[in-house]
Design a protein around this nucleic acid. Structure first.
Lengths: 223, 223, 223, 223
DNA sequence: AATGAATGAGCTTTCATTCAT
DNA sequence: GATGAATGAAAGCTCATTCAT
């Protein structure tokens, strides 16, 4: 017997469908209202799912929140996948700019989520624990970027005195902070173009440094 | 019936006294528990004040929170004020390191507050509005630092190609992110020594830059 | 300014008033609906009190239940107060009959409460613990009755071979079981007269015993 | 497709099998957790049956409970049946002791069930009704015991003045109350040995009576 | 018949806020 | 003003019951 087309909205099994609908709805609500103001009822309504269904897929509200955070973090490795292939290509500055652009998109998405956690220290502690267990967090992106920088150091395209880890951290800090600032001061509508310009400037500042004798031919040409 | 002298511990009028006790207690609770877990009962108990008294001094709980947050955010580190006096003194790196150390102390305190706000977008919007009206925010620290850098540029101690605002932003981003990381990954007990080392490294990275020809005599000596 | 008379329904302080209203309402509901079917909403409504008020007076629902049980048990010692004064008076049988009558009234009240506890082993365990700590329970009534019997033994009005504790237990068992039976088989409306007749018969059976040579002059006269 | 033989563990039809598994699982859960804390999910899991299957065999949860309770209450100890054969054998006291021992085993099992019912007066009313219709209850054991006592009266081994029904009731009350006390005060682990000693003492108290002239040769010898 | 995911009413409990004192 | 008992709306969560498969 053919099911009516209207019931076949999703091609997935309904169980997975519900789980994802819940995560999706929670993501949306978390950004627009903040963790402290999102109720299980809100989530269920937004996901068009019964309130009790939430507890079929997640042990409790905190676990749903956790899943949302981890769901976002899940994209992390892919962002940087292409970086090792750029070693020796283009200019170092251009390569770093491209990385920071993707990092920013990711950071922009997770800022409201990650920051919201500070409102509930218990939940924060749980997320912390899970992230430690799975060794997630910014450590991975830092290591990918610093590996790239080390490779460029061996090619002579990065100063031997530079400390790759420190530079990688500075870059990610710039990205995360720009995202946080956009959310905090402009409600998340800070203009992507403006953010990207600031990130490019940050990369350039990292490249040329403050020392007065840094003026090399190449950096002069690029200006 | 005359009140016993012992009850008049404070020299202020009791009304103002209560208001400050409430703000003080809330400050303490906000940092240790997160905005979402602090109840009016907690606050009243911590302030040793009746629950109802809160509503004599503040329209509602949100207004109290607002007062506290704005008070903390406005509590700017005075160490920055001594920066203009360092122009031309010591090394640029040392001066920036000292600035960053005090910025970090400030950032470390406000991270839980600032982040907590994301849990309540409505409150965040109110804070945003009031900060805009009073032109608060990181703009002031940025401008102090970049003014310093510009002065050093004129003294030839900073490369003319460097963009002071961008460098200032990077520095503050490094500080804020280190603080946030300490709270997020280590529950706010990340070891100050470690944080300071990372900040010194960040300044050094900003000073020497990534360009391979940056190796100057001075940066070689410092290594 | 005189308060309107209608507001002064109770002569007690409102706080104690509320507490007792809650306990009273719970008692009534527990008997008519059973512990498993009584909700905090029901209780609050029956006590004409806000739902939240329950949590001002009791830590949680279980503690309210506990209070109700203990409240009933609180009458226990008084029931037996007059027994020691009957030593050597009337006949032993009459004295025991009178005790059993009061015991029955008490047992009849607590049967629905005490039995209800079996539906929630956790609550039962808590009540058990509190009763042990306060050394409540049937031990006290048993000891009062057996002290009486011992005294009568010394007066020669009770056979030296009788074991006072055992007889006291049997009496209380008869009373409690009659009460339980009335509730179980007749919904608590088993007719008091009938119950009292059965208890008198029980006492008589205990007095005369089963041994064929027990037929004394006195027991023959009483028949 | 033929079902694998391994799935046909039971020789009964699967439908009846399921029904019995449900009743068995519920019996076990009711005794260990109390009627109020047993969920349909618990039952289904314990019976290794789907949750929905419960509703193929019983109209609702209450009907399942009813089946279990009636089943247990009807599960009458067969030891009583041998009582008529003891008429004139051994001593009356020994015979009654043996009866009470088996009654106790039965009472010990049903106490949690019977008492639990008080938590749901509606269910209790249903049980009451069905027991009345099938004339279940303690009436049967009472009549077996009192028939025995009457027979012993005719043999002169029991005092003519004793009222068999009353004595039978007292005995069953002693047994039930001992069981109830064990559950209530010791969580059902009160030590069987202790319970049996108390029951023997109860029988002895019933045999010798309280009257001072009861001291017969036999009871003196037994002491 | 059997399943178990889905439902949603209803539970206990919390907490910002009010108001009689 | 100051108090804190009282309020009651609303939260997170459970669980008997249904129903598409």
């Amino acid at each position: 017997m053919a099911r009516p087309a209207a019931a076949r909205v999703s091609s997935r099994s309904p169980a997975i469908d519900q789980r994802e609908k819940l995560i999706g709805a929670t993501e949306r609500l978390l950004c627009s209202q903040g963790l402290g103001c999102v109720t299980t009822r809100d989530i269920a309504r937004a996901a068009k799912v019964a309130e009790g269904a939430l507890y079929h897929h997640f042990q409790d509200k905190a676990e749903l929140m956790l899943s949302v955070v981890l769901h976002q973090l899940g994209d992390f490795p892919e962002v940087l996948q292409s970086l090792p292939m750029q070693i020796g290509q283009n200019t170092v500055q251009k390569n770093l700019e491209r990385v920071l652009e993707s990092a920013f998109a990711f950071h922009f998405r997770i800022v409201p989520l990650v920051c919201s956690l500070f409102a509930d220290q218990e939940l924060l502690a749980r997320v912390r624990k899970m992230m430690n267990e799975r060794s997630m967090g910014p450590a991975r992106s830092t290591s990918v970027i610093s590996a790239y920088l080390r490779a460029e150091q061996q090619l002579g395209r990065v100063a031997p005195a530079a400390v790759p880890e420190t530079v990688a951290n500075l870059m990610l800090a710039a990205s995360f902070n720009t995202a946080l600032g956009d959310h905090f001061f402009h409600g998340g509508s800070g203009g992507e173009a403006k953010a990207h310009r600031r990130l490019r400037e940050a990369v350039r500042a990292l490249v040329i440094g403050l020392s007065p004798k840094n003026e090399t031919k190449r950096s002069r040409e690029k200006r």
